[in-house]
């Protein structure tokens, strides 16, 4: 009556069967019970059934043995920990109310030519610059200069709205706020590490790698923009 031990899903199935049916009649003659019936006092087993499974333990009977069940249980534990980790990480991402406040509307009519207004958007400064003709001309002139982050001036403002330049006012180097009117290119200059931007906000000199970023925005009317 000796049988090979079940190596794969057999024991799991037996175990489930046993759970479903607390009575002993699941133990078929000739099948080895997963666990000894006498371990549990209340577990009634017909002696014939037990007597019919006189299997000897072989050398591979180390309880540490990594058989299917143990591996599956371990994988499930790791999976559970991994699954729970995501909510705990995601909670640090912007909350729904933060995302909802991510757009601002601004009335441009009060910004005079040659002036710049700084407003706060997503916690950062936003430069809204009403450029003079001179500034625009200087920006266009440099479209094909040796740029670190090549972009034409047209790509940095809305079509037909060359006088309005809207930029995120943080230096692309390490996030300081550049000031207008400094530097060698008539645009912005970052006081922290000396990055020079031109009148289109393009990086021209210094450690910053990129042009000042242009946010997503739309003109709601001639004098009103919505940023974000």
């Amino acid at each position: 009556m000796r049988r090979r031990r079940f190596q794969t899903s057999g024991p799991a199935l037996e175990c489930v069967l046993r759970d479903l049916n607390q009575n002993s009649d699941w133990v078929e003659v000739g099948r080895r019970p997963l666990f000894s019936p006498q371990l549990k006092g209340s577990f009634k087993v017909a002696s014939t059934v037990v007597g019919a499974t006189p299997e000897h333990h072989t050398g591979g009977e180390d309880p540490n043995r990594r058989d299917f069940i143990h591996i599956a249980a371990t994988v499930a534990a790791v999976g559970a920990a991994g699954g729970l980790a995501w909510p705990f990480i995601d909670q640090m991402n912007p909350a729904a109310d933060t995302l909802a406040l991510a757009s601002v509307e601004f009335d441009l009519s009060k910004v005079e030519t040659g002036q710049q207004v700084v407003i706060k958007w997503r916690g950062k400064p936003l430069f809204i610059r009403h450029r003079s003709g001179k500034e625009i001309a200087s920006a266009i002139k440099d479209n094909h200069a040796d740029l670190r982050d090549p972009q034409t001036d047209e790509e940095r403002h809305k079509a037909g709205k060359a006088e309005w330049l809207i930029l995120i006012g943080t230096c692309t180097h390490l996030g300081c706020v550049p000031t207008f009117g400094g530097g060698d290119y008539g645009g912005w200059f970052c006081p922290c590490h000396g990055s020079h931007y031109d009148t289109s906000g393009r990086i021209r000199k210094g450690p910053a790698p990129k042009n000042l970023a242009v946010p997503e925005y739309t003109f709601l009317s001639d004098s009103k923009v919505k940023v974000g």
Partner: peptide
Amino acid sequence: IYLLIFSGLLYASYRRIWANVSH
């Protein structure tokens, strides 16, 4: 559902590990 399956697996694992110990 996950925890139910996990508990079932652990129970099977538990019975198997303890199968050799009279306690």
